[in-house]
Structure formats: C-alpha cells, structure tokens
Design a protein around this nucleic acid. Structure first.
Length: 575
DNA sequence: GCCGTTTTCGGCCCGACTGTTTTCAGTCG
C-alpha cells in the first residue's frame, strides 16, 4: 500500500474537523484539527515517513492524539474515529455549511430537529416555511437560504483567480489611486501581496488626507462596474471582469496596522496575536492595545508593528505561519534581478512565436548572461515537430546566432518529453551533443503514482537529463497535479545531480512553494525558468521568483543566479 | 486537542456583521 500523501492526510484532518464540529466538539478541538491539517499540507517532507520514524510530533500542532491517528492511517489506511463519524452524519450535512450564514451549529440543529440532511432537503423545508419553526431562526434566515441555494452557493467552492490576472487589475488600480492628490500611501494587501498562487478577491489599503475623495476616485475608475460602501472608510467594488475589490482607507499614522492586518494570512495573524498576548499586547487592524497602559499604539509603518511586538519584520511571501515568526533577521530572498540566465524557452522551431535571435536579443535586454533554447521534442507534436534532423539544423542555427551576439551565451537544448517508460526523445548521442536538456511530462497524466514516479526518476537517471521541467503538471485553478511521489523524485534528483525547475508560467508555478522548499532543503539546485513562448513572456520569471520566495529560497539556492562560468560546471553533462 | 517566559492544567486572536433578541449566539474573514 502506498503511503498517503500530505494532501491526503490534510484532507482527512480537515474532514475530521468538519465532523467533530457537527458533533458539537468545543471549537478549540476543531481548530486543533484544522491547524494540524495546515501543518501537514505545508510540511516540506513526507508526513507519512515522519510518522513511521516516530518524529511526527516535531510538526507544530501534532501531539500524542494526532500521532496515534496518523499511525493508524499509515498502517491501516484509515482512521477509526473518521469512519465512526462518517457513519454518524449523512455526507450531505457538510454541504450545508458551505451556504453563507449557515455554519455547523445551525446545520446540526436543522438535522436534529427537522431531519434536514442535504441541500435538497433544506430547499424543500425552506419552501414549506419550516425553518422558522426553529427558535432563533426566522423568516429572514429562510429567505437568505433560498436565495443562496438559487445562486448555486452550495454546489461547489467558488473558483479563485490566478494571481497574474488579479495583480494586473490590482496594480493598475493601486497606481491610479497613488496618483490621486488625496492619497498618502496605497498598497495591495491580502493574498495578492503575499504572491499566493491564486486569490479570492483583492484587498487594497490606503492612507489619505481626504478619505471621501479617495473612495470616490476609486469607485469612479473605468475598470469598476459597480460598488457599495460598507462603512465610512471603506468601499467594496466589482470590476467589469468580475474581480471583487475591497478598499480600506485610514489616517497615515495608522497605516502600518491596517497593512499588516489585511496582508494576512489568517494563520500568520493568529500566530502574531498569540505571541503578542504573551506580552500583554492585543493586535488588531486598529492598533496594538497594551494591557499595562490601557493605551492603543498606532503604527505608521508595518516595520514598526513587528518591532513593537518584539518580532522580526516578515516579507509578505513568508506570512503563512510556516516558521517565519521565529526569524531573528530578515532572510535573503531571491529577486528577479538576481537571475543571470533562463534555461527553458521556445522558438518558432516548435510552438514559440519568435526566432532564436529575437529571443536572444530580448534576453540580452533583460541583462542575462546565458539562455537555453529548448524547443519541444518530436514525439508529442507541439506546434512544428522537431525531428532529429530538424534538431541538428537547430543546433547549427543556435551556434550561428551565438557567434554573432556578444555578451550572452546561447545554449542549444531541448525540452524533451518523458516517455511513458521514462525514456527521453532523441537518441543518446544526439542528446549528448546538446548543451542542455530539460525533460518534462506532457502525456498520460492519469497513470498511477508508482508508475509516474518511476517514469520521472528514470528520466533523472539519464546522463543527459540536466533538469526536470514543471514536475507535477498542475495548472492553477484548472488541473490538479498528477499523482506522483514528489519526495521520491527529490531524492532521485539529489542523488543524480538533476536540477528541478520552478516553471514561471503564471498558471503553473511548478514546483509549488512547499515542494521547492523541500527540494532546496534536500540540496537539489533549483532553476527558475520562464518557459517563454515569445519574447514578452520571458518576464514570466517574475511568477517563478514569487514561488521561490514563498519557498524561502535565497539566491544561493537558485542555480541560475550564478554567472555562466559557475553555472556551466553544475550541469550533469559537465560533471 | 495542543501547549508552556502564567509549564502538565487552564487557557486558547480579534473585530464586524446579522438576525434575533432585549444581551447574545452564530458566522465570517
């Protein structure tokens, strides 16, 4: 039996939290399960393996009881308490809690007192006006439920917006507001500031000399379709392309508190506040209340907020409660400017839109010292098929352009498909003639995890395979990662000297932050590549850098921050 | 159920909103 993945374990703990909540457990017990689920999901190593090793209590939020449940899950494939609770409550009951305004307490009462066990049963009861029979619930609640059901609120979790789309809108609005005469400071906050993979909505915070004027300017922007005003210093709006935006405005002396609060994440803020309480301080969006003096401290800057709490300021990308509150100094994180090369891009030879020379000149403009031209290999047919003969001609073309350009090293490479059996395209001799080979899975995503893992490990063991591209094949908000044992691949990459890529395509960002952190900790050199298909998308490394930063990676962990002379010998073929 | 600069029990982040109440429970971010 294969070990459960961290995602599987986290899902089991989340389900236990939901069911214990329905069961009426005290909220702190429920939160303990949710916290444990998050710790497992964020863990950069296999939690199943940690459990076997008897070390799982090293994870924050895992104690003796949860260890016992993990041992059961790893050894038997199931958790007895979970089976018991599943038998106790109909599966449709958890669906009810997805409706806004209907949580576990009310769901439990609807079940106990009216026998409601599904969205369908809720709708029927609401139409028959039976919900208002319950003490504490009235006609307004009933109406709200019917409206929510009509809008399909219970059907499926709402889709999130991939970060680059949200930031495009957000950055534009921030720039427009910052230029307004009433604006003192304007910043994007929330998960967009933390550079998460995707966002639910946008949070913008501002300090202004004239709050009313700035709010009016915001709602009058061309991109805004509709707006409402939930308070004196706030506006909520929707853009024409369907993105919800919250704007909050405060006086400049309070801006640091507001920015810190709305940047989150929730888990980070909870961690911050728990530590503050131990010092007799209470943190909110309005300030820091000091028990000793009864006074509320306001901070103009975010740095001041952290300093007053005795904490090191935390870069927004790290604010996920993954250990950042124990930092004693701000860690060095990789930046776009640190990158000296890009090892994954396409040209008109396969499915790209620009020539070798155009890509090279664009790379020079970005200040790169080296790039690899890595058109798709022939077996799967992206755009034009690059046959072995075509690849030989491409070698000559790249060498020719390289000879005409100063200041940049042009590598001839390929993005080779990884076959079902782990074989690369092109014969070994031709692969060995290249300067660089990145290998990726593009077919047969549905194979079992054991086979997919063996397939990619086989590629790692090929002497000409320098790196693995977009390891898990995920497309953010579109397609889940295929089943693969990432830990096993990381181990193989470390053993064979194969680099692992963070693909910068904004809907890939693959490796993700958790995997990239684990790979770097295992000593695997990480690449940040654009996977550009035209000159303009070379800039996509921005999203790869964002993921690297969320993975706590400094420049030293990222191989293509090295100058060519130091990068070249790191390639497997040069070792 | 976890956890410890209040250490093995007694706490556990903060504030806003809603609908129902007449002081508050539940929900949400």
């Amino acid at each position: 039996m294969a070990d459960p993945s961290n995602a599987d374990i986290a899902a089991a703990f989340d389900e236990l939290a939901d069911l214990y909540e329905l069961d009426g457990a005290i909220v702190h017990r429920v939160l303990a399960y949710r916290g444990a689920a998050k710790a497992v999901r964020d863990a950069p190593q296999s939690v199943a393996a940690l459990t076997r090793a008897g070390r799982v209590q090293e994870l924050p939020g895992i104690g003796a009881t949860l260890e016992e449940k993990l041992v059961a899950l790893v050894e038997t494939g199931t958790i007895p308490a979970l089976e018991k609770l599943r038998a106790k409550f109909p599966p449709g009951l958890v669906d009810l809690t997805r409706l806004p305004g209907l949580g576990p307490k009310r769901a439990r009462r609807l079940f106990d007192e009216l026998g409601i066990d599904s969205l369908q049963a809720l709708e029927t009861a609401a139409r028959q006006k039976r919900l208002q029979d319950l003490r504490g619930l009235g006609a307004a609640f009933e109406q709200k439920m019917l409206e929510a059901l009509e809008q399909g609120a219970g059907d499926a979790p709402q889709g999130r917006i991939v970060l680059h789309r949200a930031r495009e809108v957000g950055e534009q609005i921030v720039a427009a507001l910052a230029a307004h005469p009433a604006a003192d400071r304007v910043e994007l906050a929330g998960s967009a500031r933390r550079m998460a993979d995707s966002v639910k909505d946008l949070d913008i915070v501002a300090a202004a000399t004239d709050t009313r004027a700035l709010l009016d300017a915001f709602t009058a922007l061309d991109v805004i379709e509709s707006s409402s005003a939930p308070g004196e210093n706030a506006a909520r709006a929707r853009t024409h392309n369907g993105i919800s935006i919250d704007l909050r405005v405060v006086a400049p002396e309070q801006f640091g508190n507001l920015l810190q609060h709305f940047t989150g994440s929730q888990a980070h803020n909870v961690g911050v506040r728990e530590r503050a309480v131990r010092r007799g301080l209470h943190v909110s969006e309005y300030g820091i209340l000091d028990d000793a003096t009864g006074e509320t401290l306001r901070c103009a800057s975010e740095e001041e907020v952290y300093e007053r709490l005795g904490l090191t300021w935390v870069p927004p990308e790290l604010r996920e409660n993954r250990g950042e509150l124990d930092l004693t100094e701000v860690p060095p994180l990789v930046t776009v400017e640190d990158l000296k090369g890009d090892l994954h891009m396409h040209t008109v030879a396969s499915d790209g839109h620009n020539t070798i020379e155009e890509m090279a000149r664009a790379a020079l403009d970005r200040g790169y010292e080296y790039i690899a031209i890595t058109d798709h290999s022939a077996s799967h047919g992206f755009g034009n098929d690059v046959s072995p003969d075509e690849l030989r001609r491409q070698i000559d073309r790249v060498r020719a352009v390289d000879a005409t350009l100063d200041g940049i090293e042009l590598l001839i490479g390929t993005e080779s498909n990884i076959g079902v059996d782990g074989a690369l395209d092109y014969d070994d001799e031709l692969l060995a003639e290249l300067d660089w080979v990145i290998a990726s899975v593009h077919t047969r995503f549905a194979m079992p995890a054991e086979q997919m893992t063996a397939r990619v490990i086989a590629a790692c063991e090929h002497p000409s395979c320098d790196a693995i591209g977009h390891l898990t094949g995920r497309k953010i908000e579109q397609r889940a990662a295929y089943a693969i044992d990432v830990d096993a691949v990381i181990e193989a990459a470390a053993r064979t000297g194969t680099m692992l890529e963070i693909n910068g395509a904004p809907d890939r960002r693959d490796l993700n932050d958790v995997h990239a952190r684990a790979a770097a900790q295992a000593g695997v050199p990480i690449l940040i590549d654009s996977d550009a298909h035209r000159t303009t998308t070379l800039a996509n490394v921005r999203w790869g850098v964002a993921t690297a930063r969320r993975a706590w990676l400094g420049p030293a962990a990222v191989a293509n921050t090295l100058p060519w002379a130091e990068f070249a010998p790191l390639r497997k073929r040069a070792r």
